[in-house]
Design a protein around this nucleic acid. Structure first.
Lengths: 337, 337
DNA sequence: ATTTAGCACTCGTTGGTGTCGAGTGCTAAA
DNA sequence: TTTAGCACTCGACACCAACGAGTGCTAAAT
């Protein structure tokens, strides 16, 4: 049953025990600790030799020679995979009831989801709104306001509206506004943001008088797209101080530099493999800048539409069981909405 | 010339020297250090006795008995008052040229003012938009969109527009939209936000059919006011790590808790005495939660209109000269715009 | 072939001790 | 009032010993 490639059952058990213990205590685990708490019917010597081979295999490391073992990133990955493959493990019931007592309606949950996740998991959370690729412009309208000024509205399919006042050009065209609205509608309505942004529309001759207007509208759309894409909401930054590894200023620095770097967060969370539900990034090996931290996130849909990603960021030594449960639970709430 | 109430010239000189030195080095200053750098023609013993009395007077303290002196909040205040009263001290020329090389147009500066202040001073900066008290509603318009939906626009005198889509009530009134616009204009146009929010309008009989609409509009206005008021932009949080006192996690924690607490920031910066140009809050005595930090801020106008406050937050041991110069310089740029 | 008891070994932690030197306060003379 | 001089304080640093938690290895037991 034991071979070099896989892990024997006993080794798996030891590995799980060790990660479990380290997650709650943040202290190196000794062979005798494992014996006492998890495997009383085997001697410490045996455990020690198993630990030695697990270390050789890259799952563990020792802070120093006469200390216990500490899990490596590889160990955390093993641990997470274990959780993910055995769904039954997750105690969603408990999470669900916590959510139920705190929040009355699902709508509230969506709105505050980042804050909820942070509160329930006790880690810093992040919510990133999904890409704008399938946002469609429903309508563009120009509304006359007062002397020479007009308001441009861009209405999209996800309910949001971007507006801006512009100065109207001096013109002698009759019904300028009316004509403009017709043209704008024909040009933009029904098109996706990406299409609009990437197409270099040639204004045909009859549109000359509207060139300036079109340019302004186009810029609005581009701005809107950019603003949408870069939005990340972070909640509960202070939670990090609950964990002893962040008594070291360098770790705090690292944490803040990641959390404040939106581009980096996007990069880390957005797997090339877009199909997987959960993204779990652990430590340096997954991303150099992560250092001793981990990011767990999930993709969500709301009312069938892709909504974005929601996740937590915390120490490598993270309570993955809890985090994954919570993220999963929220996901089902969203989808069943 | 020396009396118990005021400070002798020599004591002032010593005090200034000490604060100056501590601001740059963050280390306790000894009597001999002062002698060497600032007062070579007097003995250390003399300086020591002066230091002792300054300590009695509450300007200084000793980390421990065989260490040099460190300035207290009181000393910083003395130092700042000194700067403020002797305008000529400020080397605005230099600051101005720095700003000039970095930014081409004044408009850019306004937009990025928080970032600029943080970069130039090397401290964390904050920009808070001024109160909404004198924002006036210019117009309220309802615009028919599509089947039963309408867009409500609120136009204010500071150029901004708040919009939201609402569902129109089922009605059999002719020209519902037109009538509504008339009513809305008569009710809201020209009024200040505060007035509107605090008046409990009784809807008169003829308005019954518009009750729901009015309620929605009113809520929009309230939301708008709240959102405006709570907006604080913070830039350069990471800058804090440049200062050695923030190698202690507790100080970082304190820093973050203040910087993330918008209400607190408002409270600290908004003096009762609304007339003063600069607000300088130093340490615990000014506000318990400040701890060992200081906040310097100034009120600004832009194109004659009150714009808000802009300031920096950093260690008590702050380069007040530089900070005040920068804030002042930006102020004149704004006002001369 | 595994497991285990036993033992030597490693090394971080803790606490004690001694020395150095920066800096002070005080006193007595200038 | 200033200053030289001196005793004193106390943190920083280095060194050392003892402790103990934990390991790896080996040789015997299963």
């Amino acid at each position: 049953m034991k071979d070099n490639k896989g892990l024997s059952e006993r080794r798996k058990k030891i590995l799980n025990a060790l990660v479990d213990s380290y997650i709650t205590n943040a202290e190196p685990i000794s062979s005798s600790a494992i014996k006492d708490k998890y495997m009383p019917d085997v001697s410490t010597a045996t455990i020690r030799s198993e630990l030695a081979t697990l270390e050789e295999m890259g799952y563990l490391s020792q802070p120093h020679i006469s200390a216990g073992r500490v899990p490596s990133s590889k160990a955390y990955k093993f641990y997470v995979d274990n959780i993910l493959s055995s769904e039954s493990q997750m105690d969603t019931q408990q999470i669900k009831s916590v959510l139920a007592t705190k929040y009355a309606s699902i709508k509230e949950i969506v709105k505050d989801s980042a804050k909820i996740v942070s509160d329930v998991t006790n880690y810093t959370s992040m919510l990133m709104i999904s890409s704008t690729d399938n946002i469609v412009v429903n309508d563009v309208k120009v509304i006359d306001m007062y002397d020479g000024t007009a308001l441009v509205l861009i209405v999209t399919n996800n309910g949001s509206i971007k507006d801006k006042t512009i100065k109207l050009p001096e013109t002698n065209i009759n019904n300028y506004i009316e004509v403009a609205n017709g043209l704008l509608y024909r040009t933009f309505a029904g098109k996706r943001l990406v299409e609009i942004v990437h197409s270099h529309n040639v204004i045909d001759a009859q549109l000359r008088d509207f060139e300036q207007l079109f340019e302004q509208v186009l810029n609005m759309i581009i701005d809107y797209k950019n603003a949408r894409e870069s939005q990340i909401q972070i909640e509960g930054k202070d939670k990090i101080f609950n964990y002893p590894e962040y008594n070291d200023v360098n770790n705090v620095k690292n944490f803040l530099s990641i959390v404040n770097d939106q581009e980096k967060l996007h990069e880390i969370v957005n797997d090339k493999d877009g199909s997987i539900e959960f993204s779990v990034k652990i430590g340096k090996e997954d991303d150099e800048t992560l250092g001793d931290m981990a990011i767990v996130s999930a993709k969500y849909k709301f009312s069938g539409e892709e909504m974005g990603q929601l996740g937590v960021i915390g120490p490598q030594r993270m309570d993955y069981k809890k985090v994954l449960s919570v993220l999963k639970e929220i996901g089902t709430l969203f989808e069943n909405n």
